[in-house]
């Protein structure tokens, strides 16, 4: 939920700073269906059907990052997308080297007040995590308790770059002097 709220805040920052989200119609976004498919699959994995084979869940979870990577590659020339790609790469790397699960800091989860139930979790405290620095180590407390990674922060910085580069008001033409 916090990711959606953060995205909404980024979107709201555009009109609040004089930009117009309508200008997003001017860019050509390729393979628009990849994002919704990736989110849908992740939601099924974590929320709807977290039970069953952990290995299968982990493999499919990594697969969703392949979908995201394909989208980012197809849209790499859009402003901000290279920044988003760096964050996504860091998240994907941490998830891949940990067998399909994002390593989380136990301390961060405790500070955020999270308690995991049974079933597959795409982010979890691991006994022997790799690259924990790229894992979920940033606690976000109430009202939307969660844990974030460095990659997440980079992703949202990239989103802000994209939105504000595309949606800002075109700069006024310089006055032509007839003198």
């Amino acid at each position: 939920m916090i990711l959606i709220v953060l995205a909404a805040v980024c979107l709201a920052s555009v009109p609040l700073t004089g930009g117009s989200l309508k200008r997003l119609a001017q860019i050509r976004v390729r393979w628009v269906w990849l994002g919704p498919v990736a989110v849908l699959v992740q939601t099924v994995l974590v929320t709807i059907a977290p039970g069953g084979s952990h290995q299968l869940h982990a493999l499919i979870h990594i697969g969703t990052y392949v979908l995201v990577g394909a989208f980012l590659w197809a849209n790499r020339r859009l402003p901000g997308v290279p920044v988003i790609s760096v964050g996504t790469f860091l998240n994907g790397l941490a998830i891949t080297v940990n067998g399909g699960v994002m390593p989380a800091s136990a301390r961060a989860e405790k500070l955020a007040g999270l308690a995991l139930g049974k079933g597959f979790h795409n982010s979890a405290v691991l006994a022997h995590p790799h690259l924990l620095w790229f894992g979920d180590i940033i606690p976000v407390p109430w009202p939307l308790p969660n844990v974030l990674s460095v990659g997440d922060c980079i992703i949202y910085a990239g989103l802000l770059v994209l939105l504000h580069r595309v949606c800002r008001r075109p700069e006024a033409e310089p006055a032509i002097s007839l003198a």
Partner: peptide
């Protein structure tokens, strides 16, 4: 034409936001 323009803007928002959310899905869906 205006509806098409709004549709393109909305689809761009949906595509970008969902990719950003999926990119950060190392989190729980709390």
């Amino acid at each position: 034409v205006k509806k098409f323009y709004l549709y393109r803007a909305a689809s761009a928002v949906a595509a970008i936001v969902t990719v950003v959310v999926a990119s950060g899905a190392g989190q729980k869906w709390g």
